[in-house]
Amino acid sequence: MESVISVKGLNKTYASGFQALKHIDLTIKRGEIFALLGPNGAGKTTLISIICGIVNATRGEVIVAGYDIVKDYRKARTAIGLVPQELTSNMFDSVLATVNLSRGLFGKAPDKAHIERVLRELSLWDKRNDRIMNLSGGMKRRVLIAKALAHEPEVLFLDEPTAGVDVELRRDMWNMVRRLREQGVTIILTTHYIEEAEEMADRIGVINRGEIILVEDKADLMSKLGTKQLTIQLQEPLTQIPSSLADYGLQLAQEGHAVVYTFDAQCDHTGLADLLRALNEAGLEVKDLHSSQSSLEDIFVGLVHEENRPGAVAGAQAAALSGGQA
């Protein structure tokens, strides 16, 4: 698939000496939804800000829609729409005025039909003459999205788009993002809500301490790093795991009323049949079974936890397997 953003050797050191980005290499494919995950201060917003032209890079190259963001900044920036993390908008402007301003700033001639389409899609048309200060937080967030879409960008950055919005609005936004993708817009999303990335993204990137530690197709990531857990409810509670079951790495749960078995779902031999047989031989009566797969959040926590461990150099994937169960 053709790339729409190419980042090569990107470094950013602020005047304070803090190195926010360390040699970032990243390619975003045209038309995909890319989720950038990372803990606070990992460098997500700095990376987005450099690509959008708000922060100067110390070193490195960024190409957007085929244009260098420094040499051909006009063409590169015209291709980008940004929805910032903070609810920043001129509170005294009307919705229509602020959205028209955004279109003008990005060098596009006024287009009433397009603006109406965007506002209707975001359920803002009825509020078009209202001052932004009179809108709810969720509506203000929609206004920021409308502003970012006013100039018909090829690439849309959503920096924590659903922070502080209710569940219904979050679902609305997810649907809107999918519709945009269907229209050919590339979406780059940073989020703290892992479920958001899990729900929407085609690919996941994890950034920590200014370094990209992983970029992977979401499906591949989930299947590669995803572990499964089988919770076995017992008829009678246990005080300790019988020695005959020691090889299975079982953990007691629910005050001894259950044992938990963790296994790799991708393995040919999961050991489930052997375990059930061993339980039977140990005289333990099974009441119920429940299996669950590790979520993207578990994987993310595992990766970042391993990265942050002093002296950790590798093995992040292995850490995800174990740390994900924490």
Binding site: Y73, R77, L82, S89, F106
Partner: peptide
């Protein structure tokens, strides 16, 4: 004011010299 409220991001990210 745009610096104070944060709306300066839009001007800086726009294709304006």
């Amino acid at each position: 004011m745009p610096k104070f409220t944060g709306t300066i991001y839009e001007v800086l990210s726009a294709p304006l010299s």
